[in-house]
Nucleic acid binder design. Structure first.
Lengths: 215, 215
DNA sequence: GTCTATATAGGGATAGAC
DNA sequence: GTCTATCCCTATATAGAC
């Protein structure tokens, strides 16, 4: 059983570590700086985490867990496929927007920015598969237009991640001030619109279909 | 004037450095390893590049230059907006596919993985602006459907980068073997299709338009 | 232009007092 | 649970012979 003081310090370390790992990457992160920002000595960190690797994994696991939870929660809920995919995208964008540091770390991790000893868990595969299965089912019952579901899902993940990590550097004017709620809504609307157009949701049927109907 | 031997070594260093920077990032890259793989002593590196920073910038500049060239070449060419955007996407995807290491480095760079002394040049802004201006013009003359051109461009960049950097880790089965030409064609087709649907290219007019036409 | 040897600094991690 | 002091290693970078 941990004391309340210990739990508080541990959380502050995780907070600061998340910030540093996002900004500087694993190899660029200095334990010395983390301790400094937390307000403790470097050696004290090793009381909470036996090594830099362990601290990294603790931060990473938080992010993976929340991603899976967010996706599962929507997929397991009710509603038509079209409604659910909108909910899914909005929940995902909001989650990413609320934790940009976490997203940066996950993106870095997928680029290979991790301790050499770290072998990533196949958790990401499961979440991805769940989303792909959902899209495929929607296509099978003709509610979604045909398009490669894996490519669509991967593309959306890359797109959203990019908006909240790299885009602020490339297009600061468009992104606005960091933490500005405007950009979140803008990205949300855009991503929903892109996916809707790709899956043929919310659009009038095509002329071909109209001709058949008229005939 | 450099000797041919010197030029050869310099190029080999740049090659190996690009590979290492992509795999390990700036802070994770060890000059010792680069020298080892090139087959020279670590100290010899400093004959070609005065510091690790300079080596990094040399690699990075190569990537930025080629990106700008690729984009400009298509934009300055002839053809209708719809044809040009397809050419642009295909050229871009091919460039990224041919230089995945370079793409990883650029993506890392936009995440802030660079020496503290490095202040990125605003070059990326110019290329982005050129593409956005092109899309906007296509929308003005009604050849493209309305959608936020900045968001579309940023999203495509993120999407494509993700396909060739992170996706192989997340969905190895879908991506196939590295260097497999299949994935390049698949990504190319997908990205062209997504953008086409977003910009309303190559699709029948909607029912609303058809009704007006029939009336 | 390449080498050996070394300077200098900073990193992660440990020992042990309090 | 936090500290001071320190170990040990590796990193970039330099000096100078060949």
């Amino acid at each position: 059983m941990r004391t309340s003081a210990e739990r508080g310090t541990r959380e502050r370390i995780l907070e600061v570590a998340e910030s540093s790992l996002a900004e500087c990457g694993y190899h660029g992160t200095r334990l010395h700086r983390i301790a400094e920002r937390v307000g403790i000595q470097k050696a004290s960190l090793f009381h909470y985490f036996p090594s830099k690797d362990d601290l990294y994994r603790a931060v990473l696991d938080e992010g993976l867990d929340e991603t899976e939870q967010t996706v599962r929660q929507v997929l397991d809920g009710g509603g038509s496929p079209s409604e659910k995919i909108r909910q899914l995208l909005e929940a995902y964008v909001e989650m990413v927007a609320q934790h940009p540091d976490r997203t940066k770390i996950l993106l870095r991790q997928s680029l290979g920015d991790a301790p050499a000893s770290y072998h990533q868990p196949p958790d990401a595969h499961r979440v991805l598969s769940a989303v792909v299965a959902f899209v495929s089912e929607g296509q099978r019952i003709k509610e979604f237009a045909p398009i490669d579901p894996v490519a669509l899902t991967l593309g959306v993940v890359g797109m959203v991640a990019f908006f909240f990590t790299s885009a602020p550097v490339l297009a600061p004017a468009w992104c606005g001030d960091p933490g500005n709620p405007t950009i979140v809504e803008r990205v949300k609307e855009h991503v929903v619109e892109v996916v809707a157009r790709c899956l043929g949701i919310g659009h009038e049927p095509t002329v071909a279909a109209a001709k058949v109907a008229i005939a």
